[in-house]
Design a protein around this nucleic acid. Structure first.
Length: 412
DNA sequence: TCTGGGGTCCTAGGACCC
DNA sequence: TCTGGGGTCCTAGGACCC
């Protein structure tokens, strides 16, 4: 079968099989947009863009009709609407996406336990052990695509190869609604003609650097001596890219995934000059981060603050503390101190973010007294108000917690 | 009408230790 | 007597991915 991909290139799809190619990469097509179209089938042939209405928003997803106008994810909404004024803009509904994502992942897991979820709309499957029960990887991929469509109404693309990287590449080449098997023996002939940006980890900056060195295709990169490459782009990146260019990728499909950091950030509708507004936002973000940490049973030792200024320049400041924490109060205190040290009056703040790193399985969260997150938030707000009145450090959180608990007992 | 929010990984310098 | 090499941790910045 021969068909066109999203960029008008011709892609050949063959029902080939190769025992060495047992890794599947599943990728839902234009996921958020496709989900919204399930609810609005009448818009199917119109350009549809997902994003919020606020003036600083970006495109989170675009259907294939909109992409023909040059509209893509991460593009400022203003630019997207300039390119495609007739685009229908729909607000995102994350609960729907999460729900459908779960359905699709369940279908994957019914085929093999070796499923590694990469993001909300992507997963790797290793079907080496499923061959005798379910058939060749090609047959399994076909069945997977059939079931995803039958059970959710969504189309997906699947790449099949011997490695994760090539499988992911293959799903991208087959998009939308495609299936592409790259047998081990054909890996290099598929890889070498592709532009260097096809390599996982080569974005615009690296591509520009490599092009200046005369490298335009994956094949060019493969034939560059490793040490030369490392001299240009660094030890680790050089080695990794060189391996990928030859189609070598030792990463296995792993089922569990441990988070390394948890964070939240917020861009203001208009830049903020008042540091008190920033501190309030820091308190809110710290609380959100803490809630997520406690829900995951985690605590962290490093608190990182992120500030983006009116001119879009961005700084980060971080502080590592001795004991892991998962309380909004503690996270906020560090974030606020970092902010106070970094902020100079007159600066316009566009974005503020809080992230907690160096996570461990945490008894950093005091449990028992306050395991209810609503109570936490309320306590933190109360504390904030008291500090505003009596000054920082004038209120002992422990005392407040006790008072609050006593009061609840009294109410009961 | 110019730039979201969630992340991961790498680099590089300095402090510190053996 | 003027300065090695290996390792870890911390901090800041940046590229990249979805």
């Amino acid at each position: 079968v021969s068909k066109q991909d999203g960029r008008g290139r011709s892609v050949t799809l063959e029902p080939v099989d190769d025992p060495a190619a047992s890794i599947l990469h599943v990728d839902l097509d234009a996921f958020f947009a496709s989900v919204e179209l399930l609810e609005h089938p009448e818009l199917r042939d119109q350009p549809v863009v997902i994003g919020s209405r606020n003036p600083r928003s970006v495109v989170t997803a675009a259907n294939y009709v909109a992409r023909r106008y040059g509209v893509n994810s991460a593009m400022p909404m203003a630019v997207a609407l300039r390119r495609c004024p007739k685009a229908v803009v729909l607000e995102p509904h994350y609960e729907r996406y999460t729900h459908l994502s779960r359905q699709v992942m369940d279908i994957c897991r019914s085929l093999t336990p070796l499923v590694e979820q990469l993001s909300i709309d992507e997963a790797f499957l290793d079907v080496a052990g499923a061959r005798r029960l379910l058939g060749t990887p090609f047959e399994i991929a076909t069945e997977l695509r059939r079931r995803v469509y039958a059970e959710t109404g969504l189309t997906c693309s699947v790449g099949v190869a011997a490695t994760k990287f090539v499988a992911k590449l293959a799903s991208g080449l087959s998009k939308p609604d495609g299936l592409l098997v790259v047998p081990l023996a054909e890996t290099q002939s598929v890889l070498f003609p592709l532009p260097i940006t096809a390599l996982w980890g080569v974005g615009e900056k690296s591509a520009e650097k490599l092009r200046r060195m005369g490298l335009n295709t994956v094949g060019d990169l493969a034939s560059t001596p490793l040490s030369t490459l490392q001299g240009w782009i660094g030890e680790a990146s050089g080695a990794k890219l060189h391996e990928l260019a030859w189609g070598r990728d030792p990463r296995r499909v792993v089922v569990g995934h441990t988070e390394k950091s948890v964070g939240h950030e917020q861009t203001f509708g208009t830049d903020v000059l008042d540091p008190e507004v920033i501190r309030r936002e820091l308190l809110r973000l710290s609380g959100q981060v803490a809630v997520r940490l406690r829900k995951a049973g985690l605590a962290g030792r490093t608190v990182a603050l992120k500030l983006r200024f009116g001119d879009f320049s961005t700084i980060t400041r971080s502080k590592t503390i001795a004991e892991p924490t998962a309380t909004g109060r503690r996270i906020y205190e560090e974030a606020r101190d970092l902010f106070d040290a970094a902020f100079a009056p007159g600066q316009r703040i566009r974005l503020v973010g809080v992230r907690v790193e160096q996570l461990s399985e945490g008894d950093g969260a005091p449990s028992g007294l306050w395991d209810d997150d609503e109570d936490w938030r309320e306590a933190e707000q109360t504390l904030d108000a008291l500090e505003a009145k009596f000054g920082r450090g004038a209120v002992r959180p422990a005392a407040l917690l006790r008072t609050k608990t006593d009061q609840r007992h009294a109410d009961t």
